[in-house]
Design a protein around this nucleic acid. Structure first.
Length: 282
DNA sequence: TGATATGTTATCTT
DNA sequence: CAAGATAACATATC
């Protein structure tokens, strides 16, 4: 279930193979996935691939684009005669023959290749949008979590107006884009701030620390190619990431806090599983 | 059987 | 109206 670093990793990989390729046809295996007219992009040449927040954008000429959101269980897998790359939610689809049971859509490309969109829970989507529509969507998002514009000066006054738990604020894309459940938990542990603290109770100094650790975990995640929480697929070349090897709290309930040795506990914050150290995250 | 899942958003309630 | 809480989306896995 990809967060910003996973999406960025996928985009970086796709950028090496997609530009210059033409979409020759599209197979739709599920009616809910594609929003818009597939005929708008069939025959079009891909000019670029980019990302904002967790949204993947494939560019075409004449201000046409498709945007793709993987949500919880989406995958994008590119395959040609020589290689297989991409990523997303780690499942058996990574190693299966494609299309698989969860393949919702396939883009057939020229020169010969295929881009598969797999999504077991059907939350993900693909939409045809103009540059103008994309600007509107991006305008509603906070800065990317690793962007230089994500600063204390930006975040502190914003948090002063919020009473939700700091973890909820950190995962709100209108506040800062791209920090999901894993990286929010990691950033809070590194900053030694409790995920339960009402956002407005953080001092300016604590906000500064949190901005720093958020930037740090997202950048580290990108460097390591994202997180693959599934032992079976961590070595799957071209698809898996390595961030799980440096995780401090996520999924470590009952294990020792890397700061103080106390047990990491699991609770629920804003309806999501939340891991933290109750003795040194205050 | 029931709880949980790395995301977002619609719809309630206060 | 706004902030916050909760449900909803649909499926697989433990």
């Amino acid at each position: 279930m990809p967060e910003l670093p996973e999406v960025e990793t996928i985009v970086q990989k796709l950028k090496t193979v997609l530009p210059g390729k033409v979409i020759t046809s599209i197979d739709q295996f599920h009616i809910k996935t594609f929003h818009g007219e597939t005929t708008d992009i069939v025959g079009q040449k891909i000019t670029d691939v980019s990302r904002r927040a967790k949204i993947i954008r494939i560019h075409f000429p004449d201000q046409k684009n498709i945007i793709i959101h993987l949500k919880m269980t989406g995958q994008l897998i590119y395959q040609d005669a020589a290689l297989k790359l991409g990523g997303g939610h780690p499942t058996a689809d990574w190693v299966l023959q494609l299309p698989s049971k969860h393949t919702r859509l396939a883009f057939h490309l020229h020169p010969e290749a295929t881009l598969f969109f797999n999504d077991q829970r059907l939350f993900g989507w693909i939409k045809v949008v103009s540059d103008e529509e994309i600007e509107k969507i991006y305008a509603g998002l906070g800065p990317d979590a690793h962007d230089p514009s994500f600063t204390t000066e930006y975040l502190y006054p914003l948090l002063q107006r919020k009473r939700v738990p700091i973890k909820v604020a950190l995962m709100d894309n209108r506040v800062v884009a791209g920090a999901g459940n894993i990286y929010a938990a990691e950033a809070l542990n590194l900053a030694q701030i409790s995920p339960l603290r009402p956002a407005h109770t953080l001092s300016k100094k604590e906000v500064a620390k949190l901005v720093e650790t958020t930037q740090e975990v997202i950048k580290r995640g990108i460097e390591l190619g994202g997180t693959t929480f599934d032992g079976k697929y961590v070595d799957t070349e071209g698809l898996a990431g390595k961030y799980q090897s440096v995780v401090r709290v996520y999924g470590r309930a009952g294990k020792a806090c890397l700061w103080c040795g106390s047990e990491i506990v699991k609770t629920t914050v804003g309806g999501r599983g939340t891991y933290y150290c109750s003795s040194c995250q205050i």
